[in-house]
Design a protein around this nucleic acid. Sequence first.
DNA 1: AATTGTGAATTCCTTCACAGCC
DNA 2: GGCTGTGAAGGAATTCACAATT
Lengths: 216, 216
Amino acid sequence: MKAEKISELTIDRLSVYLRCLDFLINNGVKQISSQELASQFNLNSAQIRKDLAQFGEFGVRGVGYSVGKLRDCLRHILGLDRPHKIGIIGAGNLGMAIAEYEGFFGTNYNVVALFDIDPAKVNRTTKRGIPILDVKRLAEEIQRLGINIIVLGVPASVAQSVLDQVVAVGIKAILNFAPMQFYVPEGVTLKTVDLTVSFDSLSHSLVVNELEVEIK
Amino acid sequence: MKAEKISELTIDRLSVYLRCLDFLINNGVKQISSQELASQFNLNSAQIRKDLAQFGEFGVRGVGYSVGKLRDCLRHILGLDRPHKIGIIGAGNLGMAIAEYEGFFGTNYNVVALFDIDPAKVNRTTKRGIPILDVKRLAEEIQRLGINIIVLGVPASVAQSVLDQVVAVGIKAILNFAPMQFYVPEGVTLKTVDLTVSFDSLSHSLVVNELEVEIK
DNA sequence: AATTGTGAATTCCTTCACAGCC
DNA sequence: GGCTGTGAAGGAATTCACAATT
């Protein structure tokens, strides 16, 4: 069907464009040009056109893009027009933070369960009523609940073994917060949010900043 | 002094190399070649050498790199050999998760305060004894405590105004979790951890995966 | 007249391949 | 002999600039 590989960078930008389109729709905007869209973030208008052109011709020359139509297309491309069931492993602060993530409101992302090893947490629910289940029953509950996205919010020391378990059950999409690298088999997508790297990058920026101030 | 711009990608990799070196030191490894280091993660050995070469000559030809010396150099380059004082705005689950982040143990990153607007939280402390302060006193407390890194863990609706406040007090490094784009003045580094983009990317990968399975 | 879609040019990043050194 | 440091080559992503279209 479609063979050309779409780069990760492009996909990430589509997500940003989509958020912007949602905002525009709420403000009653019907039509927009790539130039106007580009000025919202710090982007080149050609970049936006190139990104969109990889999936078809969504615009009208001389006119621009229909905000509503473009949003629907992007939602479809990103798979946001189908329901997703998210399971979160680790019901600590991090797991709870994701479970309550404001970005999920009004979307097809549904957090259907948290998993933990701590008996004090298991068989309770979050404030919003999401069940906290025993991680021992991870495999069967993933299948029973139809979970297709897993969030790994467990300490680095156990992350690898939990990862192996969810991959074995057939999970294909994982968001990991443990500060480490993993091997995952072909066909499984693992994204790592590495806070250590983020903080180190900030730390470095402070050093550079200081040097620049000294030079002046 | 040093004029060449170091790319963000390079800095992020240095952070990853450093983590690996820490691990090697704990396992008593004294010496390592770029080839061995590269095989640990999925990298090209020339990439590692190029990254390091931007900051000086750390290796010995025919021998490799001294693990301990290289670690110290990377720590210095990234500014990890100086103390950092982190303030977290928003004492919800996200803020608490960052405050307890395992990656901070044994580092120079110190979370010195959380800030919140909720009277039920203010003037208490976290389990580990970090004070939760009234966000009204944000400016003065940042200065009193010597905070140099701010984590924005507040809802998107108030993120911009809080951001403006911390920039006004002279904060130069900010980690933001609100799913939006901001403008920050020259000399201020803002990194955004955008979970919406991460999840959308996972959602997209599920769509692509399905198509690929169909083709086979 | 205005704006898209896109080949060409440019910039940035990665990898190759080897001279130089231990 | 083995490994670093690096110029040159190759590849990827971005931006330019304009022909095509409404």
